[in-house]
């Protein structure tokens, strides 16, 4: 057992855990930060993505001891950071994922949002290709990726004060609503 000293979501945290634990185990089973998901546990799926010094990082392959003293951000840290910097509500990316229905079961969502957050931090106006590339290490097994990419584009558009084009499913829904309204 070792006492680790971490910088997580802006807080300095001291936590006792076995030496051979991964960062993922410490986050979930010592600190209760269960937003970081445990998926394949061997680096294939990206569900355990966190940010280490602003870069997407796989917590399941990271020895806890190796990230002592580095800045770690989990999904739980996005909203407080957004509010601390003067924003209201959730992080704009979380909001966009919600708005665009960019989830089904939600398991991949924390990793997706953190990979997208790191992308927007270094490239505030990415193209669709750049978004696809940045999220290529995160697997979604439910929805396909279209609405996830659209959510990132929507957050970018909102930050630029513009709107994205209506998505195919939105037009379909509107037509369906019109039909239902027709007596």
């Amino acid at each position: 057992m070792t006492v680790f000293s971490f910088h997580i979501n802006g807080d300095r945290v001291e936590v006792a855990a076995p030496d051979h634990w991964t960062l993922l185990e410490v986050l979930r089973y010592r600190l209760g930060l269960t937003g970081t998901k445990q998926g394949c546990d061997k680096g294939d799926c990206g569900a355990c993505t966190v940010l280490v010094d602003g870069r997407p990082w796989l917590a399941c392959l990271t020895l806890a001891k190796s990230v002592e003293g580095r800045e770690i951000t989990t999904i739980e840290g996005l909203m407080p950071a957004h509010r601390k910097s003067g924003g209201a509500g959730a992080d704009p990316l979380q909001d966009a994922f919600d708005r665009c229905g960019a989830l089904q079961c939600g398991f991949c969502q924390p990793g997706m949002i953190l990979s997208a957050r790191a992308l927007l931090a270094r490239n505030p106006r990415p193209t669709r290709v750049e978004i696809r590339h940045a999220l290529s290490g995160n697997l979604c097994r439910c929805t396909g990726y279209t609405q996830i990419f659209e959510a990132v584009e929507s957050a970018v558009a909102q930050a630029c004060g513009t709107t994205t084009a209506a998505r195919a499913w939105e037009a379909q829904r509107e037509r369906a609503c019109e039909r239902e309204d027709t007596p």
Binding site: G46, T49, P56, W57, L58, T62, S115, H133, S136, G137
Partner: peptide, 9 residues
Amino acid sequence: VAGPQLRAM
């Protein structure tokens, strides 16, 4: 090589 997270690590 692999994906963005694994290339960073």
